[in-house]
Design a binder for these strands. Structure first.
Lengths: 260, 260
DNA sequence: TCTAGTTACATGGTCTGACCAGTTGTGTGA
DNA sequence: TCACACAACTGGTCAGACCATGTAACTAGA
């Protein structure tokens, strides 16, 4: 017998073919972010299908974050710039539907964020370092004022660290999972208010990470971030989480070994 | 002035409201995977909207992997069991549209997979260990035969490791990014054939990881996995990738320091 | 009685045509 | 020159219809 294999002859849905063609055009770079696709009425003649079919295809692409539509004169479907939104939604959906434990999410975040700190220690530029310093200073200054501007400074610091890791994927996933954790905690209604002591601890933690990154001490940066997140979310880590935490450390330093 | 704040009165799209309600019902667990939603014609009276609107909403949910529709008598929209497909698609889309370098993907995979090995070393059960042993034995046996069954055994080994890490999110993301890397390599047409030497190296690597996990030596397991992946994809790692690799190691062992 | 074939119905997939509500560009008025 | 109104788009929604398909019930034959 020959080597030919047949692929299943699945009846291919019309709207799906439209999705594939447009997807291909976007992903291959034929149409760049910001550019407009033809209007629905134009697409419907180009594809020789009806408008509902076109619209269903556009909805799919839209839910994947590839395009967005605006009405009006110069409106129409527009290719979107990259946005990690759909990845974030996927994470959150996964977390909820797969009943991922909050512990798993926190553990995952520990892995990502400590890795980012390690990478940042090795790859940071002076400019990125400056941004971190600036953010830490602002955190100290704002700690007395509202939690709003304080949080913004905190986020800026983290953004600078992600930036310095020189790995966009790490950053996107890290932010998505952090977002997901926040959402799930909100669902549980146990939003921890930003007490002034919590703010002080945050500043301390970030400053320690900053110093480690400044000193290019990857091991320390990773370890500090790991322990800081673990401590912050200690209430949400289950037995596997705390146990696994010890495994994730290089194997040496200041790790509370509360699990007997 | 009071503390009241107003949220922007964005015109809320009809189909979006339908999506939200159904999404809520699924994510909250009111409708469990496998159960059927009402038919499109039923939904259209329940929501008091037209059928195209219902269909657009269902398309969105479908593209998120939450539901699937089948025609026929007992067909209709059915809530899907969890599948990491949409996450995988998001990864691949992200990688292509954000022009993530293959280097970043590989680095990300190194982070995830080595962490999984570390966790597995700490949390593995005897049963999971047995699966790994079995997979390694099968890899040795199949190495002479086709690459097909060999690859399957290899995948089984990895699956066992992910399993032993006791973190489903880690597993899902790891597999998604591995998949993404394969797709992108295919795009570049440089699919590396499974030479017999490559197979032997894979067996060696997996056996080394297995032994480390057996010995509950988390540091070694992580380090071996890290270096193995780095070596395998060495051609795809750029300067940042190789440099960052050193930072990711605990800081001690057998790491080729080729970057001056 | 049991099985095989047929029929009927409900389902999703698609199409046609229409109307509404915004946005934008343009032209006309002051 | 500027402000306003109008016309021409856009997407969003609706109504009703037809088709192909898959399930289930029913019926005719064994």
């Amino acid at each position: 017998m020959g080597d030919v294999t047949f692929s299943p002859a699945v009846p291919t849905l019309t709207y799906q073919r439209v999705v594939e063609q447009i997807e291909q055009a976007i992903l291959s770079g034929s149409i760049k972010p910001g550019q407009h696709l033809p209007s629905e009425r134009d697409l419907m003649v180009q594809f020789s299908v009806s408008r509902p079919t076109i619209r269903e295809a556009l909805r799919v692409l839209q839910s994947q974050g590839l395009i967005a539509s605006k009405p009006g004169g110069r409106g129409g479907p527009q290719v979107q710039a990259l946005s990690p939104d759909s990845l974030g939604r996927s994470f959150t959906n996964l977390a909820r539907i797969a009943s991922l434990s909050l512990s798993e999410l926190v553990q995952f975040r520990i892995v990502l964020e400590s890795s980012a700190c390690q990478l940042a220690a090795a790859l940071r530029t002076e400019e990125q370092l400056e941004k971190m310093r600036d953010a830490v200073v602002r955190m100290e200054a704002e700690a007395a004022h509202g939690s709003d501007s304080f949080n913004r400074a905190d986020l800026d610091f983290h953004a600078a660290v992600w930036d310095a890791s020189h790995n966009a994927l790490l950053r996107i996933c890290g932010e998505a999972v952090a977002d997901s954790i926040l959402k799930l905690m909100n669902d549980r209604m146990d939003r921890s208010a930003n007490s002034s002591t919590a703010m002080r601890e945050s500043v301390e933690r970030d400053r320690a990470i900053l110093h480690a990154i400044e000193a290019r001490d990857a091991a320390a940066a990773g370890s500090i971030a790991r322990n800081a997140i673990a401590a912050y979310f200690a209430d949400y880590l289950d037995a596997d989480g705390t146990l696994g935490l010890q495994a994730l450390t290089g194997g040496m330093e200041h790790l509370p070994r509360e699990t007997g």
